[in-house]
């Protein structure tokens, strides 16, 4: 068994990742990820870019599409803005997700031609799947169904604004019903979510320039020496 690759927390990579082998992200990646293996974005991990893997598991934040040859799993702690495409997609209750669910093979011809380098489908437009599971026979994937129904009907505070989040009150508004309201236990468990506005928007902690950049304390090397040499 090959040792999985791991980008640690505190390390940021800006560029393209590809190759084979499992890849676990605790740090930050800005750019496309194309791996023949399992890709896991852990809780501290952030990826801004499309991710393709044999399987893609998100526990942290993803802004971009996820394509899984086998499966895509969006875990309870995940925040995802992007479409999920895989033959098996699992969204665990508690996850915050905005995007399309395309539960089919990446090789499905109705999706158009999949371009693995661009992580997009060209040719035939990808259909919007609104209710992909209601018409399915329950014998199909029972476990799936349970998870999905949990995801689709989360209990919400009654005073919560509608899904069109643009009209939602600003962060500072005292009148905004906090997510920690007792009537929303599944979402309120994580303290990190308490301060977020009560919208369906997935809040991504996008890395900014204000992030503390490390500075390497280096003595001035060789300067005096060079001067001496020049004499």
């Amino acid at each position: 068994m090959k040792r999985p690759s791991m980008l640690p927390e505190g390390v940021r990579f800006v560029g393209e990742v590809d190759g084979e082998g499992d890849f676990v992200v605790f740090g930050t990646i800005e750019g496309p990820v194309n791996i023949d293996g399992a890709v896991v974005i852990e809780e501290s991990g952030m990826v801004k870019g499309h991710v393709r893997g044999r399987s893609v598991t998100v526990r942290g934040a993803l802004k971009g599409h996820a394509f899984g040859e086998d499966a895509v799993v969006v875990d309870a702690s995940a925040r995802v803005v992007g479409d999920l495409t895989a033959p098996r997609v699992r969204v665990v209750p508690g996850a915050r997700f905005r995007g399309k669910l395309l539960v089919r093979s990446v090789a499905d011809p109705s999706l158009g031609v999949y371009d693995p380098t661009m992580h997009t489908f060209t040719g035939v437009p990808a259909p919007v799947v609104t209710t992909p599971f209601d018409s399915r026979s329950s014998a199909d994937e029972p476990q799936f169904r349970t998870t999905l129904s949990g995801f689709r009907a989360p209990s919400r505070p009654p005073s919560r604004p509608p899904l069109t989040s643009k009209s939602s009150p600003p962060l500072s508004s005292k009148s905004a019903p906090p997510l920690s309201s007792k009537s929303a236990p599944p979402l309120a468990r994580k303290p990190a979510l308490v301060d977020e506005p009560p919208t369906e928007e997935v809040m991504l902690d996008e890395p900014t320039d204000e992030q503390p950049r490390f500075s390497l304390k280096m003595p001035t090397l060789g300067r005096s020496d060079a001067r001496r040499r020049g004499q």
């Binding site: 090959k2 999985p4 560029g15 393209e16 190759g19 499992d22 750019g31 490390f214």
Partner: peptide, 17 residues
């Protein structure tokens, strides 16, 4: 952190660790 033999990275790395 570890980048395995099959992985190719094209881009910049910064941070600590």
């Amino acid at each position: 952190g570890y980048i395995g033999p099959g992985i190719h990275l094209r881009g910049t790395i910064d941070g600590s660790g």
